[in-house]
Design a protein around this nucleic acid. Sequence first.
DNA 1: TAGAAGTTCTACGTCTTGTAGGAGATGATG
DNA 2: CATCATCTCCTACAAGACGTAGAACTTCTA
Lengths: 118, 118
Amino acid sequence: MPTVTSLGDLERAAMQVAWESGPVTGRQVAERLADRGLAYTTWLTVLTRLERKGLLRRDRHGRAYTYTAVASREDHIAVLMRQALGQAQDREAALQHFARSVSPTEAQALRRALEDLE
Amino acid sequence: MPTVTSLGDLERAAMQVAWESGPVTGRQVAERLADRGLAYTTWLTVLTRLERKGLLRRDRHGRAYTYTAVASREDHIAVLMRQALGQAQDREAALQHFARSVSPTEAQALRRALEDLE
DNA sequence: TAGAAGTTCTACGTCTTGTAGGAGATGATG
DNA sequence: CATCATCTCCTACAAGACGTAGAACTTCTA
């Protein structure tokens, strides 16, 4: 299981944009996050690093690159959760603790999801 | 939700020992992990950092300190999983993806755990 | 063909983690 | 009580990740 490195603050922000706005250019990310007052090239660097981490893919479109999330946010989160779970020596016990820690709504959603599995 | 910082390699190893061997001294950790060939003070530093991160607690016992895990390994893992889940904007969707990604055995364990909830 | 817009490369400061030595405190032991 | 074995504390340094960005080079486009 290839370890997913944890993301920094800017990296997370850029991923949010990629997830919410579909394929984006560096320029678009910079505009979407203009409130942070960071330089355009800062976002380019962040996007490049996210590509190297395998979270984004990029395709040329004319002069510019377009960045696309490799996995959906939900998939990414599921991977993170599985990775946490993988650290348990007793997974069933860990799952039990997890089940106890979720809200009733979440528990219900989980039950439904598990039913749909079969 | 106070963010749990991710652990480094040595930190994780030290936590394993703390979880498996109950309260331990720095010396014991160093011995348990002697195969790594690291200096005793290296482990002391690691334990100190884990204490600062809130994962270990320490109590004086004569001249030495004894380190104890604040949460069980399973609780810690549940926290990590919840933290991952917390990044979703649509938790139900994320849980659904997670449910789909676990093994049949794990799914069964989860179902049981959720049943026991009520 | 010149300018706008894009990319690439390089760089630097800070924080985290791995790694550990030296100095000082303290408990045990003869 | 003096000394030795231990223990802690403080400090340090290298490497890597991340935030941050400018300079230089490339490429559309009018």
